[in-house]
Design a binder for these strands. Structure first.
Lengths: 335, 335
DNA sequence: AAAATTAAGTTTACCGATAACCCCAACATA
DNA sequence: TATGTTGGGGTTATCGGTAAACTTAATTTT
């Protein structure tokens, strides 16, 4: 590989002069500058960013840790982060924890040894807390994305899960539903708790008692059934609508419902959080849509501000609104 | 940040001894080893991988460049690559070129300055050739993924697009279709050309003449219509089936068809390459399914073999089969 | 008992870049 | 004439680690 010393030799100058040409610093005559530049071109010189990072103590790399790379919400978020990072002159090191704490830990170790300048962190669950403490201990700035983690103070970009959930459920109530089930992600994830709260809010506002036998906990990754659905349908007073904690849960749920011959929305309405991405033929789901791209873009912005110290010491909390989009999966309850 | 020198001082040994403990090399007594390890723990030491890379001349990082991060085919491929890379002790630097040559070039520059050990490259188009030549010039090993690039010899993992296309079209012929349209990606992408060839193969095998007015060129990113569909339907002898070059084209196509009131598969059958991922409620498309995860995993394997010189000099070409999966989007032509 | 090994570390140089400081001639100023 | 000042560049030390060669005392071999 060509180094500044090779260039320096060819150009009959010192390595420092070459460095100055590269960085446009110091006093170099136009003649020398041009000569050095020409030689750099000819020799296909590319600066070694590791050597530079070592002395500058910054890598110009950020890391993005997401819990599910197959979920369109997170891939869209990733695009937003990537675009913003590139625009601000940073590279982005992706990590996909697959909602697994073990994998997440491996990524945190990697992040530390890579000396990235900051991390965009979408936690696998509340149990990610030690990982975040590790980052904090090593003074690596981070911004939480989508999910807050109890016991961890930091900058964060989240959605308004509680309000979004309330709007979805109130939409169902407005259609005439009174028996509304909740199929949620794991309650060890903050958004799942918020969505549960929003669900309860909506019930309370409409004088519907909270019925525990209608509230289920599954996983955001996929709908873990284990007969839950059948039990739900066999209830003395079964639900006429379901609020699914996220897009994948809704998909899994509907698949099962179809299998069981339960038509949506005729016999059962289904609403959920988050859109389903570009690969859907017929946007069918009534959703609380979140601006996923913005999550990523704003997250990077906050992170870079923090890295550069271009912000006040208080933690910045950005809450992005979700939008209720009514489509075909929700309708009036059967008579 | 804690360095080996800090550790060395605490442990009353030289930095080299610490280095040897870390790498399990050289001769160090069990006593010293234990003491140094304990101190590393206590001080939360994490090796600086840049410093190490600088002297070892290897980064243990690979780069994966894909053209569309929103497409489930590529995200699944990415997961395969990520898992394999981590298993082999490599980090993965993702890049999303968005099918844009400009972005792709930016990533290539980044790759060079980051000194990654190798690149998994899914080219935006044939015009990516100069980018690959740049990598070659700098002796960065790469493996082409999914798409070949004319004028570039290299290791590659591809699908059998020609055969997959033939199978899909023969399936349509078997159902009784004779007027079969092709809505393809840009012909500057190798898979699109192969799929066109496979389409022609199937026609020829069944004595159906190739009709140019039924072959359209769009983009793999999304269905660019511009009245193409209307023209197609208004043909004197309109098609009864369409073979779409990939999943996104099929989705775009079906959306338009639904808008125009053309029922699938009743009035029009649609088949395509590649599955649609986990966010689909009801697997509906008849597809040639490719083992996307394997593309990534095998690609990494090939790449690492090449990096380590654990392979013969000839270029390895891995062709992964595609599987015809018949579902609801294809049926008999209308009577 | 002398020579040869070996165990356990240490010293030195280097990877490729940059910051901070130094140098010297040419010109301007008092 | 003596003294700044400035343009254009060079020297040296350093970032955090590792390879290779070197040291020294203890142990083994002959």
């Amino acid at each position: 590989m060509v180094t500044i010393y090779d260039i320096a030799k060819q150009a009959n100058v010192s390595a420092m002069t070459v460095s100055k040409v590269i960085n446009n610093t110091g006093k170099i005559s136009e003649k020398t500058r041009a000569r050095v530049k020409k030689i750099m071109e000819e020799m296909n010189y590319v600066p070694n960013s590791m050597a530079r990072s070592l002395v500058l103590q910054e890598t110009k790399m950020l890391s993005l840790l997401i819990p599910d790379i197959t979920n369109p919400f997170f891939t869209t978020l990733a695009r937003g982060a990537e675009d913003a990072a590139m625009r601000l002159g940073y590279k982005l090191l992706f990590g996909n924890s697959d909602e697994s704490l073990t994998k997440e830990k491996e990524y945190v170790d990697m992040i530390l040894s890579t000396r990235v300048d900051g991390v965009l962190f979408s936690a696998a669950s509340d149990l990610s807390e030690p990982h975040l403490q590790t980052l904090r201990k090593h003074r690596i700035p981070f911004v939480l994305l989508d999910r807050e983690v109890p016991g961890v103070e930091s900058d964060a970009v989240t959605g308004n899960s509680r309000e979004g959930a309330r709007k979805l459920v109130e939409h169902l109530v407005g259609l005439g539903h009174r028996r509304i089930a909740l199929v949620n992600g794991s309650l060890s994830v903050s958004t799942a708790r918020d969505r549960l709260d929003g669900y309860k809010d909506a019930l309370k506002l409409n004088d519907i008692p909270f019925d525990e036998s209608l509230a289920f906990e599954s996983s955001y990754k996929h709908f873990e059934d284990e007969g839950m659905l059948r039990r739900m349908l066999e209830l003395p007073d079964p639900p006429t609508a379901v609020f699914a904690g996220n897009n994948f849960l809704a998909v899994g749920l509907i698949r099962k419902l179809l299998e069981l011959g339960v038509k949506v929305p005729d016999r059962m309405s289904v609403v959920c959080f988050d859109d389903l991405g570009a690969s859907v033929i017929d946007p069918f789901f009534t959703v609380a849509s979140q601006p996923a791209y913005q999550f990523g873009a704003m997250g990077i912005q906050l992170l870079v501000d923090r890295i550069k110290g271009a912000t006040t010491p208080e933690w910045k909390k950005l809450v992005l609104p979700s939008e209720l989009i009514v489509r075909g999966s929700s309708g009036r309850p059967p008579a």
